[in-house]
C-alpha cells in the first residue's frame, strides 16, 4: 500500500501534449485510408437512425464494436503504446467492450428493441453523436492540435466513447444501458491524464457520460411512474 501512496496522479502523465499530437499525426498519416471505411460506417448508422429503422441499434452497436476493436488494436496496441506503459490496460478495456458490444448487437438484432420514447434521451443521444463527430475535433483544435494532428472519430477513444454513449441513450433497452459503464470508466481514466495536460478534449468525456447516466435514471423513473399511474389510475 505504501508503494501506491508514493505516487501522485501527475506521475502517471509520462508524455507532453505536443508529443501526443505528433503521435496522432503519425497515426493519421499511416491509417488515413481507413477513414473511407469509417465514413461509410458513420453514414450507414446516420441513415438508419434518421429513418428510425429497427436495425439502427444493432448496427450502431456492431459499428461501435468494430471501432473499439480498431482503437484497442491500432491506437492503444501500437501507436499510443510507444508512449505509455498503461496502454496495454486501456487496450484490454476496449477489447472487452468490443466483445460486449458485439454480443449486444446480436441480442438486439434478435430482440428488435427500438428507440427510446423519452424525448430528452433521444435529443441528448443525437447531440452526443454530433459532438463526437464535430465538436470534439474543434475542442482538439482549441487544445492546440493542428489539422493533421486531429484525433479522428472512429480511430481515437474519446469520440467513440461519446458516440457510443449517444447510441445507448437512443436505445429503449435499459439492460443495454448498463454498457454506459465502459464510457464511464474511460471518462475517469482519461481525466487523470487530460487534467494535468490541460487537454479539454479528454476532460469533457466524464461529465458528459455522467449527464447521460443521470438522464437514463430520470427516464427510468419517469417510465416507471408513468406505468404505475396507468396501472393504478382508478377507472
Amino acid at each position: 500500500m505504501g508503494d501506491l501512496f508514493s505516487y501522485s496522479l501527475s506521475d502517471f502523465v509520462v508524455y507532453s501534449a505536443p508529443t501526443l499530437f505528433a503521435m496522432t499525426e503519425d497515426m493519421n498519416r499511416a491509417l488515413y485510408p481507413l477513414l473511407i471505411l469509417l465514413a461509410v460506417l458513420f453514414a450507414v448508422m446516420a441513415w438508419l437512425g434518421w429513418r428510425k429503422s429497427r436495425h439502427f441499434i444493432p448496427v450502431a452497436l456492431f459499428g461501435h464494436a468494430l471501432m473499439c476493436c480498431l482503437v484497442a488494436w491500432l491506437y492503444f496496441g501500437d501507436y499510443y503504446a510507444s508512449l505509455d506503459w498503461a496502454a496495454v490496460y486501456y487496450s484490454r478495456l476496449f477489447y472487452a467492450l468490443t466483445v460486449l458490444l458485439a454480443i449486444s448487437a446480436l441480442w438486439q438484432w434478435r430482440s428488435r428493441s427500438g428507440l427510446s420514447d423519452f424525448r430528452p434521451s433521444l435529443l441528448l443521444g443525437v447531440v452526443y453523436a454530433l459532438t463526437a463527430l464535430f465538436i470534439l475535433p474543434i475542442l482538439g483544435w482549441y487544445d492546440g492540435r493542428s489539422l493533421t494532428e486531429t484525433a479522428l472519430p472512429g480511430l481515437t477513444p474519446h469520440a467513440i466513447m461519446l458516440s457510443l454513449t449517444g447510441v445507448l441513450l437512443l436505445s429503449d433497452n435499459y439492460l443495454l444501458k448498463m454498457l454506459l459503464l465502459g464510457p464511464l470508466i474511460w471518462g475517469g481514466v482519461t481525466l487523470i491524464s487530460s487534467w494535468p495536460l490541460g487537454l479539454l478534449q479528454g476532460q469533457v468525456v466524464l461529465p458528459l457520460v455522467i449527464l447521460a447516466i443521470i438522464t437514463t435514471i430520470v427516464s427510468r423513473i419517469a417510465y416507471k411512474s408513468h406505468r404505475a399511474l396507468r396501472i393504478y389510475r382508478p377507472r
Binding site: 509520462v14 508524455y15 507532453s16 508529443t19 503521435m23 501507436y79 510507444s82 508512449l83
Partner: peptide, 13 residues
C-alpha cells in the same frame, strides 16, 4: 528524461 524524452517512434522528435 521524464516526459521530455518520451517521444515514441516519431523520427522528427
Amino acid at each position: 528524461s521524464w516526459i521530455t524524452f518520451n517521444v515514441g517512434n516519431s523520427v522528427t522528435q
